[in-house]
């Protein structure tokens, strides 16, 4: 059993500072154990569709939440979202876009593709912590997903 199995939250984030702060927020709420962090869209897709480095990942365990940044190198968040929501197997996985972008067109495009939530990362650290904690708690603890 590898690290990539039994993941509850997949964090897709290219910015290590943002990733660290996110992980810190999740850790405070005891959600950090089952977080898996990938650094770009390509890795995210390989993880989701069990290809490349993740070809041997356990097909039964599916993340309960994908936290997705938009602006990333190689494949951006919008494209990742599109592929996840276009696939029968992965469609039901909740995806929360967490981005610095407050651009209306990103919001609209994400909702068109079937995003479950769209969060603008606050600059203020307290707000940031609070937001991330709320998301993690809601989607992983409160929300029920199909078995």
């Amino acid at each position: 059993m590898s690290e990539a199995d039994h993941v509850e939250i997949l964090l897709v984030e290219d910015n290590p500072a943002d990733a660290e702060m996110t992980l810190r927020a999740l850790r405070r709420n005891n959600l950090a154990n089952k977080v898996y962090w990938v650094k770009d869209g390509e890795q995210a897709l390989e993880f989701m569709f069990r290809s490349g480095a993740y070809a041997s990942r356990d097909p039964v365990s599916t993340p309960k939440l994908v936290m997705l940044d938009i602006k990333m190198p190689k494949i951006d968040g919008i494209e990742v979202l599109r592929r996840i929501k276009a696939n029968e197997e992965t469609r039901s996985v909740p995806v929360v876009v967490m981005t610095s972008s407050n651009e209306e067109r990103d919001v609209m495009e994400s909702y068109r593709l079937g995003v479950n939530s769209y969060i603008v990362k606050p600059v203020q650290f307290e707000s940031f912590l609070e937001t991330v904690a709320k998301i993690g708690l809601y989607w992983v603890i409160t929300n029920r997903v199909p078995k």
Partner: peptide
């Protein structure tokens, strides 16, 4: 601007807080 300038700012604030 909206994306790239905010991220480091958030880091400055976040790391100061940490």
């Amino acid at each position: 601007v909206s994306h790239d300038l905010r991220a480091p700012l958030r880091a400055v604030d976040g790391y100061a807080r940490m």
